[in-house]
């Protein structure tokens, strides 16, 4: 079977600290995979190795047919195909919302202005922020900013999207709007999505697979139904009972 992302015996260290142990993981095109686990388990780090924001020290990581661990790989090329949505949005503070969405397509993809604007307008509509194009990020709420960040990633027409705790920095009443946009993307398109999250209901609703991580290791890799009904490890059971009693 084909794959879009493949980890083979990947190790990562911060100095002496072993962050990722023996990671073996294959993601297929179109899959929606949720990564969960206690904080400090290495979920975000694993996600960030995929588009080269973090380097790996051992093993092999192939993304979209390119070897991320090799120095020769053009990471800029790779990043146009793999978008990322951050916990703290990372919108360009010096640009308007429209410019946030249109900048990378314009200067990286050399998309012409009319087409670029058309796509940006469609995306703004898709995330439900049609009239906000002229504003600056500082004028939006957290939930609005995150939806713009998603639109910005989508504008590059990526094959895969990486979500790094996209709702953790939001006020509770903002979470719903972001999740519904994410649900729309993961279910209605052929997009491959990897989501690091603590939103168990969202995981149950949209994920094809759940990866459970603790202490830099992948402890479980199961279908969503299996994971939530019958976790294999004691560690996962503990974690689930904690988050669900929350």
């Amino acid at each position: 079977m084909s794959y879009i992302i493949q980890f083979k015996d990947v190790q990562k260290y911060y100095g002496d600290f072993h962050v990722l142990h023996d990671i073996n993981l294959t993601i297929h095109p179109g899959e929606t995979v949720v990564l969960i686990g206690p904080s400090g388990s290495g979920k975000s780090t694993l996600l960030r190795t995929i588009n080269g924001l973090e380097t790996i020290q051992k093993g092999q990581l192939i993304v979209d047919g390119k070897d991320v661990s090799s120095d020769k790989t053009n990471l800029n090329q790779l990043r146009t195909d793999v978008g990322m949505v951050f916990q703290h949005f990372n919108l360009y503070n010096n640009k308007t919302i429209l410019d946030n969405i249109m900048l990378a397509p314009k200067i990286v993809l050399k998309r012409n202005d009319a087409k670029n604007r058309e796509i940006a307008d469609q995306l703004l509509k898709r995330v439900g922020l049609t009239d906000q194009g002229a504003k600056y990020p500082a004028q939006l709420s957290g939930g609005q900013k995150q939806r713009i960040a998603i639109a910005r990633s989508l504008a590059m027409d990526p094959k895969a999207l990486l979500f790094d705790e996209p709702t953790s920095a939001l006020d509770p009443e903002m979470v719903g709007s972001v999740l519904s946009v994410m649900r729309d993307i993961t279910t209605s398109s052929s997009m491959t999505s990897l989501v690091v999250t603590h939103e168990m209901d969202f995981a149950k609703a949209v994920a094809d697979r759940v990866i459970f991580m603790a202490d830099g290791k992948i402890l479980e890799d199961s279908s969503t139904e299996e994971f939530f009904k019958q976790p294999k490890t004691e560690r996962a059971r503990q974690f689930l009972s904690q988050v669900e009693h929350h």
Binding site: N51, L53, N76, R79, T80, G83, M84, F86, H88, F89, N90, L91, Y92, N93, N94, K95, L103, A104, I107, V108, L109, A149, R152, S153, M156
Partner: peptide, 23 residues
């Protein structure tokens, strides 16, 4: 400047130089 600005731009496909100049 928040390092997230550079990360956001690089993840968006911009090169280091483009991210520097524009963001």
């Amino acid at each position: 400047v928040d390092p997230g600005q550079m990360e956001g731009a690089r993840s968006n496909g911009l090169t280091y130089t483009q991210a520097m100049i524009h963001i």
